[in-house]
Every structure is written in C-alpha cells, then in structure tokens.
C-alpha cells in the first residue's frame, strides 16, 4: 500500500508539473501535423498514407518521451530535489518506475493525434489494431527508457537535450521510419538492428500494411528484452553513479 501511494504521487506530480503543461500538450498536437505537412509539400503529390503512418506515429512518440524524461530527471538532479526520492524508503526500481510511467503515458498521448489523423481522417486502413496498440505501447516504453539511459549519462540539462538529439535524429533514418531498413546500405544495417526503435516501427508497419522484415511476435519479444535490459542497466548505473 505505502509504495503504491509513493508511486502514484511521483507519477501524479510529474504529470501535473511537466507533461500536462500547455506547451507540452500543444507540442503533442502540432508536431504530427507539421510532419504530415512537410511530407505532403515535399512529395508534391498525394502519397500513400499507409507508408508514412508508422513513421509519423513513431516520431511523435520518440519526440515526446526521450528528451522530456531525460531533461526533467536531469533538472531535478541539478536542483537536488531528486535527492528527496533517494532519501525516501523506496526501492530504486519503484521510484524510477514512478518517474518513467509519466513519460510513457505522455508518449501514448502523443500517438493519439497521428493515429486519429491517419486512420480516422485520412482513412488509412489498419489491418491489426491489437498489434498497432502493442507497437505504440512498446515504442513509448523503449523511447522513454532511452531517455532514462541518457539521464544517467548527463549531468547538465543541456547535455540531456543534446544527447537526446544525438540519439533521435539518426534513428529517423536508421529505424525504418520513412526508409525501409531493407533499403538501407548494407553497411548501415547493423546500426539499425542494434537500435530498438527499429523493431517498434516494424510492428507498426505490420499492423498497418503488413509489410515487415521480422514476424511481429519476434519484434515484440526483442522490444521486451531491450526494455528489460535498458531498465535494469539504468537502475544499476543509478545506484552506482547517483549515490556517490
């Protein structure tokens, strides 16, 4: 019961103070429109919605979670309020779970607009709603955990921001968001395979147009494994580095 109270309040505070602030909400709303508009202008003609749908969803999640989490955690560490959490009788796993859940939910929220936009308004057919949901959830989890990974490496807020970009921008090209992984030069492909987002995007592609390079179950298992490894690796590093 007691840990549940702590968990819920950590989550609630972050939601209220960071994620549900108007600038962040509007970011989640404007971002997918901006990308759709850009793609539309670039192609000059109508393009297949099904082809860009997964990319837009993945981008919205990636840009909503990774830097949000790494910046807020680094900010709290810098202002030392994070020490409050370390001083409380809470397992490191639990308090970190409290911190990342807000970002995961924010990632889910950010995926709603592009999904409504593509599937609802532009009538892109979705062949498997269950897999779409699974893909969205696991992508939110994995991109949040990338943010956690970054916040362990960063000591300053600007570093968290820079590292986030360092991860995110190459992922746009390497993880099959708009260019299929199989169309990448042979040399770059190993990079794609070690980036977990690749597998999330593959699930999204499958759930929409059934094009994919791995069976969805394999993708989901790989994502789950990546999540566990990233989570526990971060916990290990937090214990080692944040308690000096």
């Amino acid at each position: 019961m007691k840990p549940a109270i702590a968990f819920w309040n950590i989550l609630y505070k972050d939601m209220k103070n960071y994620y549900l602030k108007p600038p962040n909400i509007s970011w989640g709303l404007i971002f997918p429109f901006a990308w759709m508009g850009m793609l539309l202008i670039k192609s000059g003609t109508a393009f297949s919605i099904s082809e860009v749908f997964p990319g837009i969803v993945a981008l919205s999640i990636l840009f909503g979670t990774t830097s949000m989490l790494s910046v807020t955690i680094t900010f709290e560490r810098k202002s030392r309020s994070f020490e409050r959490l370390l001083l409380a009788p809470l397992k490191t796993e639990l308090l970190i779970l409290g911190k990342i859940t807000g970002a995961i939910l924010f990632g889910l929220f950010n995926s709603i607009i592009p999904i409504l936009l593509c599937a609802g308004i532009l009538k892109a057919p979705v062949s498997n709603w269950f897999l779409l949901a699974a893909g969205v959830i696991l992508l939110s989890v994995i991109s949040t955990l990338l943010g956690l990974f970054i916040s362990v490496a960063a000591t300053e807020v600007f570093e968290a921001q820079t590292y986030s970009n360092f991860f995110r921008f190459p992922m746009i090209f390497l993880c099959g968001l708009f260019i299929p992984v199989t169309a990448l030069p042979q040399l770059l492909r190993p990079l794609s395979y070690i980036l977990p987002v690749t597998y999330g995007v593959d699930v999204l592609h499958y759930s929409i147009s059934e094009s994919h390079f791995l069976p969805p179950v394999t993708d989901l298992l790989i994502l789950a494994a990546f999540s566990m490894v990233l989570f526990y690796f971060s916990i290990y590093n937090i214990r080692r580095k944040w308690i000096k």
Binding site: W8, N9, S81, L85, P89
Partner: peptide, 24 residues
C-alpha cells in the same frame, strides 16, 4: 540538507504533501 531541495514549482503545501506521500 545543506541546500534547500524542495520543488520550486510546487506550493509550500503541495511540497509537504508530496514529501509525506513518499513515506506512504
């Protein structure tokens, strides 16, 4: 602690309540 480490953006009351919540 030697430096105040409460949440700048929370009210005094909310800060206290949050700290209480951390202890269940």
């Amino acid at each position: 602690p030697d430096e105040n480490n409460l949440y700048e953006e929370l009210s005094g009351f909310d800060n206290l309540c949050f700290c209480g919540a951390l202890y269940g």
